[in-house]
């Protein structure tokens, strides 16, 4: 009886190992969209740069995109469809007018999450790139600069009513946008079926640059069945150790 039980546990464990070590052959479709003054541009991030597989589930995207309306941006993101998004995004407004931007990064997830916990964080820098003596990055209509999204819907936001300024030629200021869900207890999130994402929404002064580093992580909450299974494995291992003694 005990032998049969131990073999079953071993098979279950092997199954779990195989499942965890499966490697995706193709990279995830990590996309970005830039909206400015009613115009949209963007696409698959790898089409404007490169993608490198870092581990079985992690991919590194980096690239550059300059549209025809005087906006240039660059990004370097590590993503995992398991899922998380972490990295840096920079944007320069090369026009003569302040502009309102909305930039969305979106990552398909796998597998879907029935119940999640979420965490996120951001910080950034603002630079007077044209040496005019001033630069500003503000929330558009008082909204949040950073919004974490799940299936395109709001999860959490940071930096509402932001008003960052630089008042010296070629000056730079750093700002911390805060965080959520990084303490205990974990912050409950929604069920996530298809994507997670980060939305940046801000108004940037003419000729200036802003850079954001941020993270958004979603973790599945263990289901009761999984918890029972985990407990069961622990007990079985304990009994196995007793037998060997």
């Amino acid at each position: 009886m005990k032998t049969t039980f131990n073999i079953s546990c071993a098979l279950l464990s092997l199954g779990a190992v195989v499942f965890d070590s499966r490697a995706d052959v193709t990279h995830p479709t990590f996309e970005f969209r830039v909206f400015e003054s009613g115009l949209a541009s963007g696409g698959e991030a790898c089409n404007f740069g490169s993608v490198t597989q870092i581990s079985a589930t992690e991919w590194f995207f980096q690239g550059l995109h300059a549209n025809t309306t005087g906006t240039s941006m660059s990004w370097a993101y590590l993503v995992d469809p398991d899922p998380f998004i972490t990295g840096t995004f920079s944007l320069t407004n090369e026009t003569l007018l302040a502009k309102a931007y909305v930039v969305d990064f979106s990552l398909p997830i796998s597998p879907a999450i029935a119940q999640s916990t979420v965490s996120g964080q951001m910080s950034g820098t603002l630079t007077d790139s044209n040496g005019s003596g001033s630069a500003s990055m503000t929330s558009t209509n008082g909204g949040a600069v950073y919004t974490a999204l799940a299936d395109g819907m709001f999860v959490q936001s940071l930096m509402s009513n932001a008003n960052q300024t630089v008042s010296s030629p070629f000056g730079t200021t750093s700002f911390s946008g805060g965080s959520f869900g990084q303490g205990l207890p974990p912050l409950a999130g929604p069920a996530i079926n298809s994507t997670i994402g980060i939305r940046y929404s801000f108004t940037l002064s003419a000729g200036d640059s802003v850079s954001f580093s941020s993270i958004f992580v979603a973790n599945p909450v263990p289901t009761p069945t999984a918890l029972v299974m985990g407990l069961f494995s622990g007990l079985a291992a304990r009994r196995g150790r007793r037998r060997s003694c």
């Binding site: 490198t52 870092i54 590194f60 980096q62 550059l64 240039s72 660059s74 370097a76 590590l78 840096t88 920079s90 320069t92 630079t127 790139s129 040496g131 070629f170 640059s209 850079s211």
Partner: peptide, 30 residues
């Protein structure tokens, strides 16, 4: 590992009377 940059360089001439470099740089250790 990688380094990426987006950097503007202003040349020195009679109209700008100044030179500068500015931009963003990202360094990643994978």
């Amino acid at each position: 590992a990688s380094v990426t940059w987006q950097n503007n360089i202003q040349g020195w001439d009679s109209t700008t009377s100044a030179g500068f470099t500015n931009g963003n740089i990202v360094i990643r250790n994978n």
